[in-house]
Design a protein around this nucleic acid. Structure first.
Ligand code: MN
Ligand code: MN
Length: 547
DNA sequence: TTCACTACTG
DNA sequence: TTCACACCATCCG
DNA sequence: GATGGTGTGTCTCAGTAGTGAAAC
């Protein structure tokens, strides 16, 4: 049964709220015709407004009247009149064969094209047959003579995407955020950000975001790299956030060039890209096209000032290989201290992961084991530093549906809040951190946070963790994560075992047959060994052969 | 007839 | 729009 | 065995209706 909201036009209210919000805060970033839409929208009948919003919220831009039946709207033909007058919706649109296929059911398609098509073939094969036969688009009514139905095309989808982007500051949050929040499915922290807060300050930035997004969609849809590249600016954006997005897209396009064998283009793109990881790819491409000297030069440049621990780690593998290629002497790497190794032979569990099997095997009544991966440490960090993470710094929050600050993944995330974080983490030195975490757990329970996984994390585990994990360890964990949130929030071991009687714990990374430590896991292991954090790697073999 | 998958809903 | 694992190819001692 | 790379499944709110294809 569906939950009931008292207002059947709830979605229209939400849409109006976005229009008002954007009009108030982003009015100067709108063109005249866009502002005119905001004004005129309120002047059409309510049923027409509602029908438009229903279309905006649904997938695609083409709809049949028979599929637009809503009790609160009534007759869609009648409601569409005002929308067509304003040009927001087009009636009887031209449709090519592919669009027609999206609109009609299979038996209807067979009626439309009474040719050699038979009911036996699948719909996708029918499309192939019809594509060859009908190349010209036709209006819906011409395709479907004798159908008692009409078709509409939404023409303001792009404008609504723009408004949504200006409201949320990203393209992946959609109109359903409102109703999900109203129903209590997603609950968000209330952040006291200033009324002047907004996602964008320049229209050109909105344009650039939308443009990059379209380019990415084309690239992911299979458009040729060269074609997409022609539309991506070749010079950096002044806005650092957008430049980051440009760099990320260029990195994935250049990697596709690597796969296609276009190494010169890949190298050119990587070399000009400041996005993290691009320099490493440039080194690898140079290595691959037989330029070990150039690869070595770039690798040494990188080693002098590595952009991240990840890059330094890659270089430790790349540099010896390059030295060998160049015939230079290799200094053997000193083998670092290794984590404790556990070898287990277990019966292959059915319907259970290898991590769960090890969890059950190692669990004791006085030392339970939890399968937490990144959730435990990140959640403790998110709870202790809740108020810092949700502090209303300029530009960090600008709508009611944030699970974290907008600059969470930026390099200066920690630096911008250094004082606040220092003060917050200092509580780990006094013992008041436990009550602080408990209080956040109770007060904030269920509120969306990028750091806190409420589902994988209950109060029993919280108490055990607070008893068993020393404050100094928590401090070291948190510092490392905050130093580079996107790179360091992952790679933590699968399991944690807690001995409340002895106030100790250990982390256990499980490796089944064929699995091996990943780079980010190795970096966490190195960290743990440096900080005397008990850590083990558990290698599992199956005691019987696979059936 | 059943089942898998998608779009839609609040 | 994430993260971790499963699996494959290649190279090397 | 070490390394690099690619593909896959898991997430997504839970429940419902519609569609199309496979099972029977
Ligand atoms: Mn894992
Ligand atoms: Mn593991």
């Amino acid at each position: 049964m569906r939950q009931a909201l008292e207002n059947p036009f709830y979605y229209l209210d939400n849409f109006r709220q976005v229009l008002a919000w954007v009009g108030e805060r982003h009015g100067d970033l709108l063109h005249d015709h866009e502002r005119a839409f905001l004004d005129r929208f309120h002047q059409v009948p309510q049923a027409s407004q509602a029908l438009l919003v229903r279309m905006v919220m649904r997938k695609g831009t083409l709809f049949r009247a028979s599929k637009l039946r809503y009790t609160e709207i009534g007759c869609p033909m009648q409601a569409s009149v005002a929308l067509i007058e304003h040009g927001w919706v087009e009636t009887n649109p031209m449709l090519d064969v592919a669009q027609l296929f999206g609109l009609l059911k299979k038996d209807e398609l067979l009626r439309v094209c009474g040719n050699a098509a038979t009911n036996n073939q699948r719909k996708i094969d029918l499309l192939q047959a019809m594509l060859a036969e009908h190349s010209q688009p036709k209006p819906f009514a011409s395709w479907c003579e004798g159908f008692d139905d009409a078709a509409f095309a939404l023409t303001i989808g792009d404008l609504c995407d723009r408004l949504r982007l200006m409201f949320f500051g990203n393209i992946h949050q959609d109109w359903s955020e409102f109703v999900l929040a109203d129903l209590g499915i997603f609950r968000y922290e209330r952040v006291a950000f200033s009324p002047a807060s907004r996602a964008f300050h320049e229209r050109a930035d909105v344009d650039a975001y939308l443009h990059l997004h379209r380019c990415r969609e084309r690239f992911e849809a299979g458009d040729a790299a060269e074609a997409v590249l022609q539309d991506i600016p070749s010079t950096p954006y002044a806005n650092e956030w957008l430049e980051n997005r440009r760099g990320k897209l260029l990195l994935s396009i250049a990697r596709q060039c690597e796969r296609n064998g276009d190494l010169p283009l890949a190298l050119r793109l990587h070399a000009a890209n400041r996005y993290p990881g691009a320099r490493e790819r440039a080194i690898r491409v140079l290595e691959r096209c037989g330029q070990p000297e150039a690869a070595m030069r770039l690798a040494l440049t990188a080693q002098a000032v590595p952009e991240s621990e990840h890059e330094a780690q890659q270089l430790q593998r790349i540099l010896p290989r390059l030295l060998r290629t160049l015939g230079e002497p290799i200094t053997r790497r000193v083998s670092l201290t290794q984590p404790e190794r556990i070898d287990l032979t277990l019966p292959r569990p059915e319907g259970m992961s290898v991590e769960q099997a090890v969890r059950e095997h190692l669990s004791r009544s006085d030392a339970p084991v939890y399968y937490v991966e990144n959730a435990l440490i990140n959640s403790l960090l998110g709870l202790l530093c809740w108020d810092v993470i949700f502090a209303p710094l300029p530009g960090a929050f600008f709508h009611p549906f944030h699970a974290g600050p907008a600059d969470l993944a930026r390099p200066d995330f920690h630096a911008r809040r250094a004082g606040l974080f220092d003060e917050c983490l200092s509580r780990l030195g006094t013992g008041e951190y436990r009550d602080c975490i408990r209080r956040a757990f109770r007060d904030k329970f269920g509120l969306q946070s990028h750091f806190v996984s409420w589902g994988l994390f209950d109060e029993a585990l919280l108490e055990l963790a607070l008893v068993c994990i020393p404050a100094e360890h928590l401090h070291a964990f948190f510092q490392r994560i905050l130093q580079d949130v996107p790179n360091h929030r992952s790679g933590l071991p699968d399991l944690v075992q807690l001995w409340p009687g002895e106030q100790r714990y250990r982390l256990i990374e499980v490796k089944g047959p064929g699995d091996r430590l990943q780079d980010n896991q190795k970096r966490w292991i190195d960290f743990a060994l440096r900080h005397q954090v008990p850590i083990a790697v558990c290698y599992v073999q199956w005691s019987e052969a696979a059936p």
